[in-house]
């Protein structure tokens, strides 16, 4: 009887192949990913058969919550002199011009630092008289919470105000625009001619509303746009397979 020699097996597994796969997957995700943008409200867009993708540049998107809060977000060009930051800074200056024309008694003027802060925020939507106070909040998470309306905003004279988006109401008089209309006009008149061009073509303004939004709320936004002759725009939808 010879001794059965048990071969000692190496228990370690070769991880090289595994590592190869994970690196490949990682590369794939890194290249295809576009990061989720932080938005003050969560919106589930309604499904539609429309196939045209949302442009990722030169876009003014209007976020509409089911309760009627309105927020705006501006995207500039990806690869030209009119980057998002430049367009936003210009937008704020334009808007301040419009606002001060309408309210000459208490004009709002921004410092260089405030303009810089504004050019870095994504979606925004505060009444313009509080814009300065909002931009001066140093804590970024607190600023987001104030925008969402979870925390009150402390104004410079010590008052606490809860914010609810850009002030908007039914208005059919184009010569007396409300704040929302002023913002849209300010974006249209910004020095980014590409944004102006895409608004003219109907691709520059996109309304992003939740599917549970009552029509009366969406109608206010649409009607406001119609009044200032921006009657070509698009609605953001989620993909649905076409039924034959």
């Amino acid at each position: 009887m010879g001794k059965v020699k048990i071969k000692k097996k190496d228990t370690r597994i070769d991880m090289t192949a595994m590592s190869d796969v994970t690196v490949l997957l990682l590369t794939f995700f890194m290249l295809t990913s576009t990061f989720l943008q932080k938005e003050p409200i969560t919106v589930i867009t309604p499904p539609s058969v429309a196939k045209e993708p949302v442009p990722d540049q030169n876009l003014l998107s209007v976020l509409v919550s089911p309760t009627g809060k309105v927020f705006l977000e501006v995207l500039g060009s990806k690869d030209s002199t009119f980057k998002s930051e430049t367009v936003r800074a210009d937008l704020l200056k334009n808007m301040a011009g419009f606002y001060n024309e309408k309210h000459p008694s208490n004009p709002v003027n921004f410092t260089k630092k405030e303009v810089e802060t504004f050019s870095k925020v994504g979606a925004f939507g505060v009444p313009f008289q509080y814009m300065k106070d909002w931009l001066n909040i140093k804590d970024v998470t607190l600023r987001d919470k104030v925008l969402e309306g979870e925390e009150p905003l402390t104004t410079k004279d010590g008052k606490k105000v809860k914010l609810a988006g850009i002030p908007i109401s039914m208005n059919e008089n184009p010569s007396n625009p409300n704040e929302f209309q002023m913002w849209v006009r300010a974006a249209y008149n910004s020095m980014d001619s590409e944004l102006k061009h895409s608004i003219d073509k109907g691709k520059g303004i996109a309304i992003k509303a939740d599917q549970t939004t009552p029509y009366s709320v969406v109608n206010i936004v649409m009607d406001n746009l119609q009044t200032i002759k921006m009657n070509k725009f698009s609605l953001m939808t989620a993909l649905k397979a076409e039924e034959e």
């Binding site: 990682l26 989720l36 649409m222 939808t237």
Partner: peptide, 21 residues
Amino acid sequence: FFMLCTTMIKSQTLQIMLPTN
């Protein structure tokens, strides 16, 4: 991390044109 933070589905747009007021 990348899987959780990315949006794979891009939104689509439906273009409409309304008359002016």
